[in-house]
Design a protein around this nucleic acid. Structure first.
Length: 578
RNA sequence: UGCCCGGUGGUGUAAUGGUAACACUAGUGAUUUUGGUUCACUCAUUCAUGGUUCGAGUCCAUGCCGGGUAGCCA
């Protein structure tokens, strides 16, 4: 990958200038720019996922940060897979991660794998042993835990800590050669068992682990630990600023110790707070559980906070980048309200999504004075926010469907839609008046409305436009509209913090049983040919996306991305309807 | 109860010793052939107490509160 293949949609590529307000990382970088270690270098970052799951919106924050920093400073950003634990990692994840990063609109300068550095890492381990700073330890996991001490009490030194350099060298080679069982021994750094920072109490560098690695196959039976691999990988790639999340803060002294004792280029690690979203779980483990236990249809279920789920749901890369920009970067733990995410996508879709009429819960309307068999093609504006989007024609016929919610028999004062004897305008059409309400005699349910239309009120005509009524509703021809499956998604969890479960319960008990509602809607005939991934606004309703998996040519299936803001429901819930 | 890191409106971020700003939410009003969009207005003495200073959200001290941390995970 070269830095010249940036995708055109790369954010803020138009101007590489920094925003007037710098976040704390930018401020630190700014200070570092003059440092000797930056001489001859450009700001270089990396996004370092472990390929053990799909990327989620939290990773998007990190991606936007790392790639964004590189763009702001005309620097470079690599994609590096942190694949040091073959027991959890798979090629499927490697592929999905690359797809997701690209879809978000970023292109890496270099693609790397920590596993590319296994030989170098091994040599460095030998170097450390030779310097008397690492040793092979035969303690098992349980013993090591005992020797480590506690948060308040110092640890004690391993009985194997003082083996000779020669013996350590021989044993380490034997580890590599496969002469030990899994877990039989480890290579540890010799630092300080009394250190207040537990990470410095002779941390493990290598463990014996017989597992097939997705890249190196069966070449290795020892694998480096994160701490031993990460900083050195950064160093090899010339990363100037290694941005990671807060939980690695305590590891920084170790990161620094390795670079110093190996006498290699020393990048600077800077930590930031990871993203938390209300009504959402973000840990890979929990997302994996949702998938494995079939609470969702897969990693790309449109309700998932994964990048692939959001993509399938219909979110745009622009809206996600915008969201990441909006939430900021800081060092303290915070939770972003999901509505911020929802507003980001509304904002973008409002600008670009073509409007279309669709009735989700149809109620039949007969225009009693409209000639049978007559079809009028009415001009409809595709996007009021974008005149260049032009117009289209929608067929008006005698029999229509309207939204059930747009009719009320006993309407409160502030209900501006159809009521018995009341008038309303059919969007882009005529003013109609409700003359008769037909009900199912058995259940009392309203099954049909008989209305008259006023031919003098047609939209587009001068005198027709003059007729103002309070309400305008959308509609679809009962005879010309087509039926399509529509999936209404709601948040996956009922609780703002899904982890917040009573004793004995888990986040799974907080799942929203109604997070998916499937119905059949009646939509404009023009939608028959909508292609997978296409996004539209169902007027007065919400933004929808043609599902890329379940749609067939001529048979689109719609996913609701996000509903429109709805001030009427707010008025209702506040009881201000009169 | 060691070590590390944090505490600024309902939420999230700014203010780098000099008038607490921006965005979102919420509320009110205006516009509107989407109860959408857009526009206007309203909403904080910065965890607490001391100290330094002409002046402190910012510096210092103490306290309180929150988070991370004892994998051969990352």
């Amino acid at each position: 990958m070269s830095s010249t293949d940036k995708t055109p949609s790369t954010p803020s590529s138009s101007s590489e200038s920094l925003p007037e307000r710098l976040n704390f990382i930018e401020q630190e970088i700014e200070k570092d720019l003059a440092l000797p270690r930056m001489s001859g270098r450009v700001v270089t970052t990396r996004f370092p996922p472990e390929p053990n799951g799909y990327l989620h919106i939290g990773h998007a924050k990190s991606i936007c940060l790392n790639f964004g920093l590189a763009q702001s400073y005309s620097g470079r950003c690599n994609l590096r897979f942190d694949d040091t634990n073959p027991s959890k990692e798979e090629q499927e994840y490697v592929d999905s991660i690359q797809e997701d990063v690209r879809w978000l609109g970023f292109e890496w300068d270099e693609l790397h794998y920590a596993s590319d550095y296994f030989d170098q890492l091994f040599d460095w381990a030998v170097q450390l042993i030779e310097a008397g700073k690492a040793f092979v330890c035969d303690l098992n996991a349980e013993q090591m835990r005992e020797y480590r001490g506690t948060l308040t009490a110092p640890g004690k030194e391993s009985p194997y800590r003082n083996r000779s350099v020669e013996e350590n060298l021989k044993l380490f080679q034997a580890m590599r050669a496969g002469e030990f069982e899994n877990g039989a021994c480890t290579l540890r750094a010799k630092i300080d068992m009394a250190a207040a920072n537990v990470n410095l109490r002779d941390p493990v560098l290598y463990r014996v682990l017989r597992a097939h690695h997705h890249r190196t196959g069966d070449k290795w039976c020892i694998y480096p630990m994160y701490d031993w691999a990460h900083g050195q990988s950064d160093s090899i790639e010339g990363i100037t600023h290694s941005i990671c999340t807060l939980e690695f803060e305590d590891h920084r002294p170790l990161y620094d110790w390795f670079c110093e004792n190996l006498k290699i280029y020393h990048p600077r690690q800077i930590e930031f707070a990871r993203l938390n979203l209300s009504y959402t779980v973000m840990s890979k483990r929990k997302l994996l559980q949702l998938v494995q236990d079939k609470h969702v249809s897969g990693w790309d279920d449109p309700r998932m906070p994964t990048i692939s789920g959001l993509r399938r749901r219909g979110y745009t890369p622009e809206s996600l980048r915008n969201f990441c920009e909006r939430i900021g970067v800081a060092k303290f733990y915070s939770t972003i309200d999901v509505t911020v995410l929802e507003n980001s996508v509304r904002e973008h879709l409002n600008a670009i999504a073509p409007r279309v009429m669709a009735v989700l819960h149809p109620l039949k309307v007969v225009l009693t004075n409209y000639p049978e068999g007559q079809v009028e093609m009415l001009d409809a504006i595709n996007n009021p926010e974008d005149p260049a989007a032009g117009t289209r024609q929608v067929p008006l016929t005698r029999e229509l469907v309207i939204e059930r919610d747009d009719f009320m028999e006993d309407a409160p004062k502030k209900f501006f839609r159809l009521k018995p004897g009341g008038e309303v305008r059919l969007r882009y059409g005529y003013v109609i008046k409700c003359e008769q309400v037909i009900k199912d005699p058995a259940t009392g349910e309203v099954t049909e409305l008989h209305c008259s239309y006023d031919p003098a009120t047609r939209s587009g005509s001068e005198e027709g436009e003059q007729r103002k009524v309070k309400g305008v509703i959308h509609w679809v021809s009962a005879t010309h509209g087509i039926e399509v499956p529509v999936r209404l998604y709601d948040r996956l969890f009922l609780n703002e913090n899904p982890e917040d479960a009573p004793a004995g319960k888990t986040f799974l008990d907080n799942m929203n049983p109604d997070s998916l509602q499937v119905l059949t809607a009646k939509v404009e005939p023009s939608l028959e040919t909508a292609a997978g991934g296409e996004r539209v606004q169902f007027e007065r309703n919400g933004y929808f996306c043609v599902d890329t998996v379940d749609s067939q040519p001529g048979k689109p299936v719609f996913n609701r991305i996000v509903p429109l803001r709805d001030s009427w429901s707010k008025i209702q819930s506040q009881g201000k309807t009169n």
